[in-house]
Design a protein around this nucleic acid. Sequence first.
DNA 1: GCACAAATTCATCGCACGTTGAAAAACTTG
DNA 2: CAAGTTTTTCAACGTGCGATGAATTTGTGC
Lengths: 205, 205
Amino acid sequence: MNEGTQQAEPRRRGRRAGGEDTKAALLAAAREVFMQRGYEGATVRSIAARAGVDAAMVNHWFGGKEGLFAKAVLQLPVDPNTLVDHLLSGPREHIGERIVRTFLGVWDPIGGGQFAALMRSVTAHDQVADVLRDFFVGTLLKKVVAGIGTEDRPELRATLAASQIFGMGMVRYVVKFEPLASTDVETMVQAVAPNLQRYLTGDIG
Amino acid sequence: MNEGTQQAEPRRRGRRAGGEDTKAALLAAAREVFMQRGYEGATVRSIAARAGVDAAMVNHWFGGKEGLFAKAVLQLPVDPNTLVDHLLSGPREHIGERIVRTFLGVWDPIGGGQFAALMRSVTAHDQVADVLRDFFVGTLLKKVVAGIGTEDRPELRATLAASQIFGMGMVRYVVKFEPLASTDVETMVQAVAPNLQRYLTGDIG
DNA sequence: GCACAAATTCATCGCACGTTGAAAAACTTG
DNA sequence: CAAGTTTTTCAACGTGCGATGAATTTGTGC
């Protein structure tokens, strides 16, 4: 019903009138559909349809489904530098709390479905796990750890913290274990933040 | 070239000579392939091939791919009761340590690939998430929490602990963040067990 | 404004999938 | 051992996929 009385012209062939960026439209559509359906579940046809474009454009612009996937997945929903700055602002003995609040603040509003979708892509395709690992370990965690300045095994601490964050997301958004999936942010902070804090600045043996 | 000099008999038709349990062979093959490839990635033909059987047997015995999937996924690698008993044996102030040791003891030897595969199925298909949730929350966590006997919000504590365990598995086996992915069991116990212990028996706010 | 390049759609190809029905072989029962 | 049942393979169908190449339209340089 989204076209109303507009009779569906079969859309004329040939070059489009100026202004419309097919490549960008495909990338945006690809991000959505890949996230929702995973790599194999997303079809080139459905992505092209959402972009309002013919499926052949995927081959024309990205050399195929794989190429489109590679380009689309690399576009992350948050800016790493802003994120790191925000996490590192304030006293280091409250960084655990800030991480929990930031994480839930990002994903709770969008229903967590996006997080579930990201996990789906991560587990379904090794490429995505690689990209995510490079981003998380090579960029985000490295900077956070450097900012905190803990001397003892900083990389291990960072990945331990990551494990708690990933797990919180998995249980809250993907498998949805109750009551954790419905627990309010304050309670989550009180429960989880101290454990994160211990990983990052406490005694881990 | 994978048949060598063995002339490929096209395998005679009709009922097989006694003893071979096609149904069980299919279930075993299905568990492996579904785990490795996820639901959509696993093809009926590949499962049947691994079971040494024609693809039509999937429809004959399980009514189709979905039916086979439902049966195959419900077969978990560990016995819940044995697992619970083992976790609850010993002093309750060491249950965190016992959980970490048990978890790593189960998955580390099989390379963690199986865990990654399980996560793949969980994230790819809502049905699996449902099954896993029922098993974890309804059976395993409920019993463990009851066995520990903590009064304050036992279910929340259980799911918090689950979040740390899931996250440890994700980081160690799926996205493979270093150095956590390669850290030895003793160090993992020293790092993670206290946090689990706090979730289960400590002060969570 | 005319030739040429770029962008887009369409029709179609080949392939792999899940499923189906018939034929064939082995068991089972009397 | 004959008739009937169960199990298995085989051949094929319909479908949907990613990809390709020709046709068509728009934009650009001279």
